[in-house]
Each structure stands twice: as structure tokens, then as C-alpha cells.
Computed example of a mutant assay.
Amino acid sequence: MTSIARTLRPAASRLLSRSSQPYRALPFAARAFSASRAAHIKKYSKDHEWVEMSTDNKTAMIGISEYAAHALGDVVYVELPTVPLEVAAGDSIGAVESVKSASDINAPITCKVTAVNSLLEEKPGSINHGPEDDSAAGGWVAKVEVPEAGVRDFEGLMDEKAYKEFTEE
């Protein structure tokens, strides 16, 4: 997809080059725009779930890690949490079944489940293709509201580097 700014640049340069005067201000401002997602912080639990916290520490997304998805193999069923559901860190919010095994999905932080990825009920294999993808077609499990206790739980989780070291042990 081409950005508006990239589309306008050729037009702006043609307008400037046609001008017989040395430099003339354009009747519009040509600025470069970029669409970037708000910064989120992702951390991991020892149970192989990830949490991506919003910058305001009020909402987050939860899913299983790529390591867990790979270890499970082809996922054939995902049990999603009910909405709304208040849970403490470590409580089960769902389950994942694969051709190899089954595993609970535990809440890595204290939170309130506000939405679930219902695509996983229809296409459970989506979790294998993008377990840490938080887009509409990704393998995220739940969107949650995070109270103060959840923010404290989040601070105790592993960052990406620490999680990678943890899984290599």
C-alpha cells in the first residue's frame, strides 16, 4: 500500500520544477507520514504464555509462545475463556489440544478477559502459524483489562532475551 506522502512527492517535485521562479511555497504542506503501532511491551511466563501490555498499562493481549506452539505440534482444538472472566495470575483461562498433547492456557497476570480470538475455535491451526501474532488473523487468545495487581505480575515476567535463555536451558 502506498502512503499518501509518497503519492504526493512526485506531484510536488513536478510543481516545483515547472516553476520559472527559483522557489515557491506550495499551497499544501508535503509531510512524510508513517503508520506505526503504539509501542507495546511483550513479556513471557515460565508456562510459555506471552503478554503484550499497552503503554498505558490498562489493557493487554495474551497468547501462547512460538516455543509452546512448536512443542505442541499441530493444534486441533482451542478452548477459549468465557467473557467476561476475572482471573488471578496462574489461573487456567483455556486449553490447547494438539496431535501430540494437551495443555492448559494459564493467565500470566491478574486480569479480566474482555474479548477472545474466536477465529481459533473455527481454525485452531491458526495458533501454529502465528502464535505471537496479535492481528485479526493471528494466534492471540484473549484481550484483557489489567488492574494494578496485573501490572505488578507483569513486571515479574521475563523479557524476550530472558525467555529465550529460559527455553534454551
Rank of each mutant, 00 (worst) to 15 (best):
R18H: 08
I4W: 07
D134V: 11
A88K: 15
K100Y: 08
D104T: 14
R9K: 14
I4T: 11
L26C: 08
A39T: 14
V151H: 06
T55R: 12
L72K: 01
V113W: 11
K161D: 07
I64A: 00
V83C: 02
P108L: 02
S34E: 15
V87S: 01
T7M: 05
V144T: 07
A137N: 15
I109R: 02
L157W: 09
A136D: 15
A11T: 13
K46V: 13
A107L: 00
A95E: 04
I4G: 00
P131A: 08
P22R: 09
G73E: 11
T7G: 03
E121I: 10
G125P: 00
R31F: 04
D91L: 01
A38R: 13
S13E: 14
Y77S: 01
K123Y: 10
C111A: 14
I105T: 03
S103E: 05
S34D: 12
V87E: 03
S36K: 12
G130K: 09
Y163Q: 05
S34Q: 14
I64H: 01
G94N: 05
H48K: 06
W50A: 00
A35I: 15
G156R: 05
N117M: 09
G63C: 12
H70Q: 08
S98K: 03
I62M: 02
V78Y: 13
E132G: 06
F28R: 13
A39Y: 13
E168R: 06
G73I: 08
E52K: 09
G138W: 07
G156F: 01
V99S: 09
A60H: 12
P10E: 09
S34N: 11
A12C: 11
R24V: 13
T59H: 12
V116C: 07
K164D: 06
N106Y: 10
L15A: 14
K58W: 10
S135F: 08
E132C: 06
C111T: 06
I93H: 04
C111Y: 04
I4A: 03
E169L: 11
S92C: 11
H70P: 00
K46T: 14
G138V: 04
D133N: 15
M158F: 10
R6G: 03
V141W: 04
I109C: 04
N128W: 06
A142H: 07
Y163T: 04
K58V: 07
N128Q: 09
G139P: 03
W50L: 00
E97Y: 10
A29W: 13
S19F: 07
E97M: 02
S65V: 02
F33A: 03
V141I: 15
M61I: 12
L80I: 03
I64M: 00
E169P: 00
S3Y: 12
A71V: 03
V96K: 13
A39C: 05
P84G: 09
A149Y: 10
S34I: 13
K161P: 00
V151C: 03
K100M: 06
E66I: 00
T59Y: 07
E148G: 02
A39R: 15
V96Q: 14
R18A: 07
